[in-house]
Each structure stands twice: as C-alpha cells, then as structure tokens.
Computed example of a mutant assay.
Amino acid sequence: MSAIYNFNAGPAILPAPVLERAQHEMRDYQGRGMSILEMSHRSPEYETINAEAAERLKRLLDIGEEYHVLFLQGGASMQFAMLPLNALPPDTSADYILTGAWAEKAYEEALRVGRARAAASTADNSYRSVPSQADLALDPNAAYVHITSNETIQGVQWHAWPDVGDVPLVADMSSDILSRPLETQRFALIYAGAQKNLGPAGVTIVVIHDAFLRRTSPNLPVMLRYVTHVKNRSLYNTPPVFAVYMVNLVLAWIEEQGGLAAIEERNRRKAATLYQVIDASDSFYRGHAAPEHRSLMNVTFRLPDETLEKRFVAEATAQGMVGLAGHRSVGGIRASIYNAMAQEGCDALAAFMTDFMRRNG
C-alpha cells in the first residue's frame, strides 16, 4: 500500500498496530476458529474484552469504583438527548456553555427535553474562543453544566476547565478524550463517540459518577436509562461487539505509548508543527481559533480565497494527504491530528503547506 496520511475528522485514523492485530485476529480470535464478529456477546471471550476495556479506560482516566464506564450506541448525538432525559428534572434547568457547532446541537436537543440556559456563548466572535470565567452566567441551582471540550468544526478547545462550584460538570469529549491527562474527578459525566480517538464508529463511551447516577430519572424507557446499562455492565442488549474490541486494542496501544502524559507531549508537538507554518505565513494561512484557544486535535484555517482552498485540497489529496477539506458548514481547511496521527504526517503536511504558499502566495 502507498502511504496515505488520513486527516479526516471522523471516522478517523486508527493506530497501524491496532489495525494489523485486528486483521490478524479477524478470521480466528484466540484459536476459537471464528471471528469476534460472530461470537455471542455472552461468551467468556467477549465478556473479557468488555471488562478489559472498562478497566483500561479507568486506569487511563485515573478513576476508581465511584465511576462507571458504559459502552453504548447512538453516538454523541444520542447523548445530547439521553443526558437531559436522565438528569434534567422538570422543576429545574441545565446550563450549557456554547463554544461551537457541537455545543449548539447539544443545547438545542436539551431544549426539546426540558429547560436549558445558554450560560455563555462565543457565537459573537464566530466561535474563535471559549468564554472566560468572568463571562459565565451560571445558575448555582442548575441540574448540571454542559461543555464541549473540543470543537472539531471551529478548532477551539478548553485548556482550563470552568469553575462551576457545586453544580455537576458534564462534558462531550468526543474529539479529544484521552489526548491529554484529565482531571476526571471534576466531572460528573463524560461522553464521547469513539470514532476519533478511541476506535471505530458504532460505540459511544459514557463515564458517569455514582453520585450523579443516583440523581437520574427512573421514569424512562429501559434502554434510555443510564442505570440499566450500569446494572448490566453494558450488556443489557447486544452491544457493538467489534467496536468495543477495537476500543480495547486502542486503549492498550495508548498504554504502550506511555499513557496520557506521553500522548499529550506527542500531540503538542504535532499541533505546533502546523501552527508554526500558519503563524509564519504572513496571513496567507489564517487560523480560525484564537491562539490561546487553539485545538490540539483539529487545526482549522483559511486561505486567501475559496479557489485556492479547493486547489490546496486537490493537490494535497494527490500527494496522499486526505480529509483536509473543512466542514461543509464553514469551508476552509481542517487537519484533524488525533492520537493515532504520527509526527511524520504533520511534517509532510507542513512541508506541503510551505511549498503551496511559495507557489501561490
């Protein structure tokens, strides 16, 4: 195979050793003579995978038995509704901090379920930043405060968590979970679609504190209750077996890299490689996010005009760098450099950016 650098925002690049092991085990998992895709989710083999993945995630997040790890379906978009259905009583409201397109979607879904407030928004600066602590108009009686830790479309990221007092803090971490060490104890609930940093599409991770779980509503359809999935260890119904198997392999790979501190160092180097080209380009490349709020996962920028942007994407694709077109709602360029992207890929893109500017600037 020729070398391809995959900058897609999701489903995204997976570690090569993980794909190679999955390929090796595809037809015959651990001598069973069948694929993990064919095995019962009640089999000892799958129950081991399920338990291993949960324990690995707890180790990486440095959490204990007070937290529960769930493997659900429906993506983060399902969690936009499942969270308020479980945790937003009719006699209260929830605070949402709006920092981009995905925070907006979570907020809009909460409004369909109950009462929600926009406690802060950076929409007036086209979501180039996250709000300062002084900009937060938080309700001390809110059911929870919701943030989106990293916005894939706008390319902004929280680098310091907001102080929300005694109100439970909830985060959509779909695009930056396990990209850096995390003060997990500050969060009552974290959810993340796996298809960016954890595995393939099809499984959603939910990490929920026991105290927050006890506050959730029992008056829901069984499949929509967090309690159902905690009691059944994510095995109430047939789970996305292969996706969880892949998550387990990715978690093992992260541990082999040295854990989250080593992953963060690697991610900072990769992001700096690209941001340095942008900052040195004399505005030929214009980064969307304010420098202090730039994402380490999604580097977003514009060129002088859309014609050049289309040429940039076409030429990069011809050189084996795929997935660089910005989200259809905003255009521009987006390089998604999740955990599995090697430094080599960012070096290749930086060299291409420099050459493209030389030829077109």
Results as ranks from 00 to 15, higher is better:
Ser2Phe: 03
Ala3Ile: 15
Asn6Pro: 06
Leu14Cys: 00
Ala22Ile: 10
Arg27Cys: 04
Arg27Phe: 09
Gln30His: 13
Arg32Cys: 01
Gly33Tyr: 10
Arg42Asn: 14
Arg42Met: 14
Ala54Tyr: 03
Glu55Met: 12
Glu55Ile: 13
Arg56Thr: 08
Leu57Gln: 08
Glu65Leu: 14
Glu65Gln: 15
Tyr67Cys: 09
Met78Asn: 15
Met82Gly: 05
Pro89Glu: 07
Ser93Cys: 13
Ile97Ser: 03
Thr99Cys: 13
Lys105Thr: 13
Tyr107Lys: 01
Ala110Asn: 02
Ala120Arg: 06
Ser121His: 10
Asn125Met: 09
Tyr127Asp: 02
Tyr127Pro: 01
Gln133Lys: 11
Asp135Val: 01
Leu136Ser: 05
Leu138Lys: 11
Asn141Leu: 13
Ala143Asn: 04
Ala143Asp: 06
His146Ala: 04
Thr148Cys: 14
Thr152Leu: 15
His159Trp: 12
Ala160Lys: 13
Pro168Asn: 09
Ala171Asp: 06
Ala171Arg: 05
Met173Cys: 14
Ser174Glu: 00
Ser175Asn: 04
Asp176Phe: 06
Leu182Phe: 03
Phe187Glu: 01
Leu189Ser: 01
Lys196Glu: 02
Pro200Asp: 00
Ile205Met: 08
Val207Gln: 00
Ile208Tyr: 05
His209Tyr: 07
Asp210Arg: 15
Arg215Pro: 04
Thr216Arg: 06
Val222Gly: 01
Val222Phe: 06
Leu224Thr: 14
Arg225Met: 13
Thr228Phe: 04
His229Met: 05
His229Thr: 07
Lys231Ile: 03
Asn232Met: 07
Ser234Cys: 06
Pro240Leu: 03
Pro240Ala: 07
Val244Ile: 15
Leu249Phe: 03
Val250Arg: 04
Glu255Met: 04
Leu260Thr: 02
Glu265Pro: 00
Arg266Phe: 03
Lys270Thr: 00
Thr273Tyr: 01
Gly287Lys: 04
His288Gly: 00
His288Trp: 15
Ala289Ser: 14
Arg294Phe: 11
Leu296Ser: 11
Phe301Ile: 09
Leu303Asp: 07
Glu306His: 13
Thr307Pro: 05
Glu309Trp: 10
Arg311Cys: 09
Ala314Phe: 12
Glu315Pro: 09
Ala316Asn: 06
Met321Lys: 07
Val322Ile: 15
Ala325Thr: 11
His327Ser: 10
Ser329Thr: 15
Ile333Gly: 10
Ala335Leu: 01
Ala335Pro: 01
Glu344Ile: 07
Ala350Leu: 12
Thr354Cys: 08
Asp355His: 07
Met357His: 09
Arg359Thr: 12
